[in-house]
Amino acid sequence: MQDAFADIRPYNDDEVPAVIERLMRSGDLAGALLKYRFPRIPAWLRPLLSPLLWAFMKQRLKSIHTVETFQHLIADWVEAILEKSSAGIEVRGLDKLEPGKSYLWISNHRDIAMDPTMINFSLHHAGWPTSRIAIGDNLLRHPDVSDIMRLNKSFVVKRTVANKREKLRELQRLSAYIRESLDDGHSIWIAQREGRAKDGIDETDTAVIKMLALNGRDRDEAFTDTMRAMRPVPVSIQYEWDPCDLLKARELTHREQHGRYEKADDEDTRSILLGLTGFKGRIFVDFGEPLSDAELESPDAVAAAIDRQLTEMTEILPVHEAALSLLNQSVPDTLQPAAKLLQSRMAGAEPGVQDRLLRTYAAPLLQRKK
């Protein structure tokens, strides 16, 4: 029987040994791991140390025969990263949901790699099965990255398809895959919009909701029936400090001033590494409530319901208040520590970039005032 989703779905257990063998032959992966693990080692010394590190990694990889064993290896690595890069993680709301059910987690999107990582980290620690993860093909250009992500339950969203008719076919296939996964008991994570909310404003794109509902057409289902079967649940992911804040502020300021922004070839990779390893302060992961039938009547109603829950779950932190105080040029004594940290992060940046960064951190308060 032909596998209709073979090129987009995560790898199955029977495919894992061949993928691991492929990764163990990769010179690019060895170099990248060495550069990540020992960033301060001079470039000329890395080729000498590469065989030692790679021998150690091969020993670890040899024990991986299933997706679950690979995810256990990833979990240990994520635990170590979060230990160094965060000041604690608070997970809320899972106790109000049913562990035996599959859910469509729809979250805000601030970080390329950390957002789905935090979803699965939270589920894993609560004893829940991890989710399948939607990831754009623009982030999977390198075959090693594609292999690692698909080993880690990622499935491919084909964003780079140019032809409109082909793009619609791919969206229909994606929607069908998501529905089939949910029906088979696998939860799904997808962001509320394409691309990160670099301005700090979390708004659900109705195009995402319409894509999710495409599978209902072949079943002659009403929109509400399709969405009810997919069980969407909003999830809020919040980082006290954004390691990529200055990069995002510079990009947005450049767009405002010049109308466009061209990414460097390795920019997404640098953002991923900085988001993973940079200090994030406190992290909050809030699982919301399943949407009611009234909230599933239309794409607009679904988007509004998700946005409402995300707003309600957002924790207002001193950094948000300090950013707004700096914009208003009046900082009370209680917010001076957070304000000084913000000022140190912006030191040397152009005034426009500084203003953009402050508006991003103040966004939760500014949006509530609206």
Results as ranks from 00 to 15, higher is better:
Asp3Gln: 11
Ala4Phe: 15
Phe5Asn: 10
Ile8Met: 11
Pro10Ala: 02
Glu21Asn: 14
Leu23Ile: 02
Ser26Glu: 10
Leu33Lys: 09
Leu34Lys: 03
Ile41Gly: 10
Ala43Thr: 12
Leu48Asp: 14
Leu48Tyr: 12
Pro51Ile: 01
Leu52Asp: 05
Leu53Tyr: 00
Leu61Ser: 05
Ser63Thr: 09
Thr66Ser: 15
Val67Ile: 15
Glu68Gly: 13
Phe70Thr: 04
Gln71Asp: 05
His72Pro: 06
Val78Gln: 10
Glu79Asn: 12
Ala80Ser: 13
Leu82Cys: 07
Glu83Ala: 11
Lys84Ile: 06
Ser85Met: 01
Gly88Asp: 13
Gly88Lys: 12
Val91Asp: 02
Val91Thr: 11
Gly93Ile: 04
Asp95Glu: 15
Tyr103Gly: 07
Leu104Phe: 07
Leu104Glu: 10
Ile106Tyr: 08
Ile106Asn: 07
Ser107Gly: 13
His109Pro: 01
Ile112Asp: 00
Ile112Leu: 01
Met114Glu: 02
Met118Trp: 01
Ile119Glu: 09
Asn120Ala: 06
Asn120Gln: 03
His124Trp: 13
Ser131Thr: 13
Ile133Trp: 12
Leu139Tyr: 08
Asp144Glu: 06
Val145Met: 05
Ile148Met: 12
Met149Gly: 13
Leu151Tyr: 09
Lys153Met: 13
Lys158Met: 14
Arg159His: 06
Asn163Trp: 00
Asn163Phe: 04
Lys164Glu: 14
Glu166Phe: 09
Glu170Arg: 13
Leu171Gln: 11
Ile178Cys: 06
Gly185Asp: 08
Gly185Leu: 04
His186Tyr: 11
Ile188Phe: 04
Glu194Pro: 12
Gly195Met: 00
Lys198Ala: 00
Asp199Gln: 03
Thr206Met: 03
Ala207Ser: 02
Val208Gly: 02
Met211Ala: 00
Gly216Glu: 08
Asp220Glu: 10
Asp225Gln: 13
Thr226Lys: 05
Pro234Ser: 07
Val235His: 04
Pro243Thr: 01
Asp245Glu: 09
Thr253Trp: 00
Tyr261Arg: 01
Tyr261Ile: 00
Glu262Ile: 07
Asp265Tyr: 06
Thr277Pro: 03
Ile283Met: 09
Val285Arg: 00
Ser292Leu: 08
Ser292Cys: 03
Glu295Thr: 02
Leu296Cys: 00
Asp300Gln: 15
Val302Leu: 04
Ala303Lys: 02
Thr314Trp: 02
Thr314Phe: 04
Ile316Thr: 05
Ile316Arg: 00
Pro318Leu: 09
Val319Ile: 12
His320Phe: 13
Ala322Trp: 12
Leu324Cys: 05
Ser325Phe: 10
Gln329Tyr: 10
Val331Trp: 08
Pro332Asn: 04
Thr334Tyr: 15
Gln336His: 07
Lys340Arg: 14
Ser344Met: 10
Ala347Val: 13
Pro351His: 00
Val353Phe: 02
Val353Met: 00
Arg356Glu: 14
Arg359Ile: 10
Tyr361Cys: 08
Ala362Val: 10
Ala363Gln: 11
Leu365Ala: 09
Lys369Thr: 15
Lys369Glu: 15
